[in-house]
Design a protein around this nucleic acid. Structure first.
Lengths: 336, 336
DNA sequence: CCAATTACCGGAAACGTTACCGGTAACGTT
DNA sequence: AACGTTACCGGTAACGTTTCCGGTAATTGG
């Protein structure tokens, strides 16, 4: 509090002009003498005047703040998306306010309320894995605050959405396994209530179907949480007879942990069993054998999502759209 | 804009009382009849009134927003710290505004200015790896905005700081290698201008010294960027004769990539060479052999940093402090 | 029963900015 | 010479709160 913030009034007083003239000079308004405008701009720079965004927000009813809610920032996917968002936000002079739902629908609602209280101009949301109720989102919409959902969306709620085509990613991965000669392909699926699990599972099933391979329920196992405790499921898969010759994993970490386990058991990857993951974690390029996996364009997802949102903020009547980005199959040694 | 935001005036009008009374009722102010207070609270709940933070901020000169600047959100360390911050921020009803410097000092300054323009109540910063100039931070201080640095700090700038004792972490890791019988321990160091590199290197050197082992410059190699291209350095280390019997890595990813490379070359880990990393990435528990590594309490760092900052915001005369958190050595198979 | 205190409430100013309206000069136009 | 136009500027209200000051009615004390 030592140095008080310099205001538009200070500038007006020092230049012996009115506040409205100063205000006009500061934005690029008409009805202002270029001379006085320059004088104001000069003094403003000298005193390093910064407009008070709260005062501006109060009268303009815009904060230039965008609220972001993700299930967990601790995730390559979401942190990449967030990076993309910051880039675009900087370019358009928007600010990002950030909340985390911890995969909890209640916390998610509290976060949204919190952001709404801050009068964010728009909302960027990736819903938690057991969010079902759309009531809160409808309220946001009624308030006139535009919403864009990314990655994890809510089918029952209509708004602009940016997603990645996980179905196609899974399909491509399994198709790749098939083309490499696998005939008996297992799948380690994710938590049952996450939409990602269902999408990837469907890709797995449809790929099998396309190539006339049977879908065997015994070859489909689940882990209850992401990145955790996939080992029991893996052991079960390995133990099944006849042994599978390929496995498609819900994510890279479980794939890696499986590869390590199989190597210990004397099973050769990719010789005996070929393995594909999902996510393209940094470590996947580094392990031995390097892991074939599905890369998601999460950075792009973030950029696109915030781009659409800013459009919607600037012109509220712009139509809602759903954009689906394609994954990229990264082929490495684990399917050689 | 369909439904206009309900304001304190609306409440006043509907209850036939004045705005000041409503205002008194909403905070827990004295000089108010419990009956009218309840009536206001009830109506506020019904209409789901939310105070306009901008108007509040304008008169109270507080925004309840805390600005955060990190080098890269895409990093287990910083995303964990951010998680910790969100938890405390929620508890104290603060909001987090987020910027990324991308390890660029210029971008860092722009981020700070941006945050300052938003009139954040305080700043949480982890500086980029080539930030040297303290001028910008001094300006922040003069503006009366409290600053807390975490993890990556600036020695020449005095403010509250929360760091982890990487020196001791490195020391413990190398000491552990020595106790496991290693006599010729190599070190893969990080980028030369990052303080983390220097701290961990010093721990490495001092541990060697404590046990009377010579420090051999040929056994100290550098990688220029984190998590990238450690392989050439690793090859050089392995090729040195006599071969080292232990390696301490700047981070887990390079350690893992080294282990994989060594296994391909027929070198047994931990039989021939024992390996320790730094960070405790999730994958480190999962690979074969599992990786001994130094765990940093990044979540705690985030919680502590924001806690200190909020203290400083609430009572501006609270003394500056530096807290150093201890790491935890996670012993796994790579040093067995 | 009167004065003093208390409990409660309303009015108005202020925070920093923008938006609107109006006014004064100077400058053409016919 | 009278009028309309243009260029520029100031005053004021408003945005939604809080804070301070003052005022009225009820309550208390002697």
């Amino acid at each position: 509090m030592s140095t008080a913030q310099v205001t538009i009034k200070d500038l007006a007083r020092q230049l012996n002009i009115s506040v409205s003239t100063v205000s006009r000079a500061l934005r690029n308004a008409p009805d202002i003498n270029p001379g006085t405008k320059n004088a104001v701009l000069k003094l403003a720079a000298e005193l390093s005047y910064e407009p008070n965004v709260m005062a501006q927000g109060l009268v303009k009813k815009k904060t230039k703040i965008i609220g972001v809610v993700v299930p967990a920032i601790h995730s390559n996917y979401f942190s990449d998306a967030l990076s993309g968002m910051t880039e675009v936000a900087n370019a358009y002079d928007y600010h990002l306010m950030f909340c985390q739902s911890n995969e909890d629908a209640g916390q998610e609602i509290r976060s949204i309320k919190k952001l709404l209280a801050c009068h964010v101009d728009g909302l960027l949301i990736s819903v938690s894995k057991d969010t079902k109720n759309t009531a809160e989102f409808e309220k946001v919409k009624q308030l006139g605050v535009p919403v864009v959902m990314f990655d994890r969306t809510l089918p029952d709620f209509t708004c602009s959405k940016v997603i990645v085509d996980e179905y196609e990613g899974a399909f491509k991965a399994v198709e790749h396994l098939i083309r490499k000669g696998c005939k008996r392909i297992a799948h380690l699926a994710g938590p049952v209530n996450a939409s990602v699990s269902a999408n990837r599972m469907k890709g797995y099933i449809d790929a099998l179907a396309k190539y006339g391979l049977p879908v065997n329920d015994k070859l489909i196992l689940r882990c209850n949480a992401f990145e955790e405790d996939a080992l029991p499921a893996i052991k079960k898969i390995i133990a099944s007879r006849p042994m599978p010759d390929g496995i498609f994993f819900i994510n890279d970490l479980s794939a890696i942990s499986a590869i390590q386990y199989m190597q210990k058991k004397g099973i050769n990857v990719p010789g005996d069993i070929k393995v594909a993951g999902f996510n393209d974690d940094p470590v996947s390029a580094v392990i031995q054998p390097s892991l074939t996996t599905v890369m998601q364009p999460s950075y792009e997802v973030g950029k696109l999502a915030i781009g659409i949102l800013i459009d919607a903020i600037l012109k509220p009547e712009s139509p809602e759209q759903t954009i689906s980005l394609r994954t990229k199959l990264v082929i490495r040694d684990s399917t050689k």
